[in-house]
């Protein structure tokens, strides 16, 4: 089993993802450069956080046309698991793999602090290790995380259980103060329709060891690895 972490010029959480996978979860991971045209037989792909192409034009808008993204789009269309974190989420929206867009934070300022998330759907391949309603703590670090979509899209996301994480307070309530960026419906993470692509603004890779202050993000990686082990062809 191997998970590819894509490095774009300006990615800065690629090594954190790589380390979380290799050193904490104990699974094979490799970097793929944005100019690569092959995913190298990866079983899952992670688009990490950062500021790809300096966030020029719109966050994620230029990375979306990187050579590797053609393969990522194909991989996702074939049902391959793709996780986009922060800038990775923005890239997934720009690429049309997830609906909606991430606007400038409502308060205009860059937000860098821990947030609480409520797991809204624990029946996805990324969240099976959590309980529905569980409250997680992990960091955010973004200037454009204000999730926006038209009303129809939002009600479809709600109805289909595709809102995976919502910003809440420590008690698990969606109070206005718990929403760090003005996201519609307190959305912190959404799933695509088939359920194999997850985008989220918070950083689970920065919450995988006690020394980082939280291990609440680990479940995303272990859920994914468990899913891959369960679906892997039997060794011949």
């Amino acid at each position: 089993m191997k998970i590819s972490v894509i490095t774009f010029p300006g990615s800065n959480c690629d090594y954190d993802c790589y380390k979380a996978l290799r050193d904490v979860v104990g699974v094979d991971a490799e970097f793929r450069w944005h100019k690569d045209r092959e995913l190298g037989g990866a079983d899952a792909v992670i688009l990490p956080g950062g500021f790809s192409y300096g966030d020029y034009l719109r966050a994620g808008s230029i990375a979306r046309f990187s050579p590797i993204m053609e393969k990522v789009v194909e991989f996702a269309a074939d049902g391959g698991p793709v996780l986009g974190i922060c800038n990775g989420f923005q890239i997934l929206c720009e690429a049309g793999l997830l609906p909606g867009a991430l606007l400038r934070n409502e308060g205009l300022t860059f937000q860098s602090h821990d947030v609480h998330l409520r797991v809204e759907n624990a029946e996805t391949l990324f969240t099976s290790g959590y309980q529905k309603g569980q409250v997680l703590r992990m960091p955010i670090a973004h200037g454009e995380g204000n999730y926006h979509a038209d009303t129809e899209t939002l009600s479809r996301l709600e109805g289909d259980g595709r809102i995976v994480f919502r910003y809440v307070n420590a008690e698990g309530e969606t109070t206005p103060w718990a929403n760090p960026n003005g996201s519609a419906h307190h959305i912190a993470g959404i799933l695509n329709e088939p359920g194999n692509v997850l985008g989220m603004m918070p950083h689970p890779e920065r919450a995988v060891e006690e020394i980082l202050g939280s291990t609440d993000g680990l479940g995303i990686f272990t859920s994914l690895v468990e899913h891959l082990s369960a679906t892997a062809p039997a060794p011949s």
Binding site: L57, F65, C93, A101, L103, H148
Partner: peptide, 8 residues
């Protein structure tokens, strides 16, 4: 294709 995102 690139310069504007019709969602926003």
């Amino acid at each position: 294709k690139l310069l504007a995102n019709p969602v926003m």
